[in-house]
Design a protein around this nucleic acid. Structure first.
Lengths: 243, 243
DNA sequence: ATAATTTGTAACAATTCGTAACAGTCGAGC
DNA sequence: GCTCGACTGTTACGAATTGTTACAAATTAT
């Protein structure tokens, strides 16, 4: 498998990088691309644009969303460091992408990306797995949007955020929410007021307490889980299961 | 492109089909598989099952759905002839699949399928395009579920069905709805009553008339489009667009 | 024909929305 | 460091949509 010419991934300081040692992972593909940044609120691309590039979020948070006729906005996802944007589409972006916070990212030409993945038996399954995960997330979101009440929606969202942040910091019980209430509302199919009301209610129940401007400290994670009801199985949540 | 050995697609009656002329399309992959059938209401597979196979619907309609804790059901999609089921998942089914009507289908081992696609530069982009279309559909469904009212939901659904049936029969204005009101409700995030109410209202507006048990004749397709509001753009629907 | 399922209608209830007023936070500039 | 102003978030309340419950009608299955 391609005797190491220089080094796996390090030592690429001689500008002329024309010997493309084949990357072993999707992330490695991006690693040589220049790092760009956009300010909070700026647009990365618009729905319907010719999809010439795709992006890897390195730092910050993006929102991807669709707007329908009368201005209603639907945020179909938030993207965090490590996520790829603009993969699962044919030739035009299906959604717009904006920075929630100052965001650093790497860019890759779609054509080149497709070629690279297409010619690498290692990369192909990685891409496929990403698409599958994206699909699974979309389906869970459909469940949330169509059949969950406001409290369940908010708890599901908070729980997902908590889990995500615990991947990096396993002990933490504090959720950082860089997006606004409007963003959260448009992601959960609610209004800002309902999001506020619900968080207030959860605070009143002692499930969480606000911590700083954009932070929430989770006090009763188990209760949060129970309300979120994210179990894919039949019975009730966790405990309490006899009729 | 592989000189035709026997015939493109016909003449495969000698049982021993061991010379695997490489299929040019995904559909061709399935064509040699045996045809199975399941009765209306029967289960093809369950959410969480080990995903050993994938399926191509040949005739009939399937519903794929998830059930959450207290029995709420979410139909994430209906599958019609030509659709593949069980592709975009890692190793367990993300949803259950049942037959809405008597359904004929072909089965393929997932392992073999992956191998076949993986080794064919022709098949790979076809699979990728299918996944992208599936993703696009999921996102449109998120829009529908999170921000559309009952009337918009029903009209969007009916319009999609009409378009689908016009692909086969371009002139028809009659929609066949083999699924029950409950199925439709669980697909649109409504209740059967609301679906009924809405269809009654649309009938009252002269937009459509019931035709037989499972049929609806569309009288004002344009109006249906306007209510559905499925345009991905900014302004109002189709016409009327000057401020 | 009878039973079971599905669909339709109506009155009522519940949740979420929409509007509005108010409070809190952050940043700019003094 | 402080004040002002803009933006974001919170709370309250009336309104609207959809869900709930109940029942009747229609269709299909036994």
């Amino acid at each position: 498998m391609y005797a190491a010419t220089a080094a796996q991934n390090s030592g690429r300081f001689l500008a002329n990088t024309d010997a493309p040692d084949p990357p072993l992972t999707l992330k490695a593909l991006f690693r040589r691309q220049a790092l760009n940044r956009i300010e909070a609120g700026s647009t990365l691309f618009l729905e319907g644009d010719q999809a010439k590039h795709l992006y890897e979020v390195v730092e910050g948070v993006l929102r991807i969303f669709k707007i329908i006729g009368d201005g209603r906005r639907i945020i179909t996802g938030f993207l965090y460091p490590g996520d790829l944007v603009g993969v699962s589409l044919r030739d035009r972006y299906l959604y717009s992408a904006e920075a929630v916070t100052l965001t650093r990212f790497r860019t890759f030409g779609r054509r080149e990306f497709q070629d690279a993945v297409n010619s690498s038996p290692l990369l192909r399954p990685q891409l496929f797995d990403r698409l599958c995960d994206e699909m699974a997330a979309a389906q869970n979101q459909m469940v949330l949007l169509s059949r969950k009440g406001a409290e369940e929606k908010v708890c599901s969202f908070l729980l997902a955020r908590l889990r995500h942040q615990q991947q990096m910091n396993p002990l933490t019980m504090v959720i950082d929410l860089p997006m606004t209430r409007l963003d959260i509302a448009d992601y959960l199919g609610l209004t800002t007021e309902t999001v506020s009301r619900t968080i207030t209610k959860l605070t009143g129940s002692g499930i969480l307490v606000p911590e700083g401007r954009h932070g929430l400290r989770i006090l009763k994670a188990k209760t949060l889980e129970n309300i979120a009801g994210d179990d894919d199985q039949d019975g009730d949540n966790r405990a309490a299961r006899r009729n």
